[in-house]
């Protein structure tokens, strides 16, 4: 019963919060309207979200967010340096493959997004069996080192969170 009314409790909470922020007023009226939207929308869209991901460790989520935010700032300084002070023909940009250990679709989606936002790499495709990502690097000198960096820094943490 409770599963039918609240297919995704986290989504309900997020929708309520986003509605209150959109109205820019944290009053009971906006809270009630937001809660109504937060209950109706997950039920209407539940056919798009057949199963719900399990989050094992909420503390690790906060740690992951902080690590990624720090890396985004560092990545931007590096990429800005590459763009401004490196001649085009000295750039060694190419595609490489990152084998995946995580299997949850949500975790893979978050990993792909993280790779795009962090140091000089853009994830551009996934293999048909879902076991490797195609990544493009702006300036890759040591392919193996980049891959192990991604795996140890992000994939391990995501594995702890989702699996």
């Amino acid at each position: 019963m409770i599963r039918k009314v609240f297919p995704h409790p986290i989504m309900t909470a997020v929708l309520t919060l986003v509605w209150m922020m959109l109205m820019n007023a944290f009053t009971p009226a906006t809270f009630v309207l937001g809660l109504i939207l937060g209950i109706i929308l997950p039920i209407l869209t539940s056919c798009f979200w057949p199963d719900r991901p399990t989050i094992r460790n909420p503390l690790k989520v906060a740690e992951y967010i902080i690590v990624v935010l720090y890396d985004i700032v560092v990545a931007n300084v590096q990429v800005a340096y590459l763009i401004l002070f490196r001649r085009n023909r000295d750039l060694r940009s190419r595609f490489f493959t990152v084998p995946l250990e995580i299997r949850t679709p949500e975790a893979i989606a978050i990993l792909a997004g993280t790779i795009t936002m962090t140091p000089g790499t853009v994830s551009s495709d996934i293999s048909t069996d879902g076991k490797s990502l195609l990544v493009h690097g702006l300036n890759v000198t040591d392919e193996q080192e980049t891959v192990t960096g991604i795996k140890s820094r992000y994939e391990k943490r995501l594995k702890d969170i989702f699996e």
């Binding site: 493959t97 996934i126 048909t128 069996d129 076991k131 490797s132 195609l134």
Partner: peptide, 14 residues
């Protein structure tokens, strides 16, 4: 030119 996906059996890019 794209590198092949990791793993031994046949799989392509999506």
């Amino acid at each position: 030119q794209l590198p092949p996906p990791a793993g031994t059996h046949k799989a392509g890019w999506a």
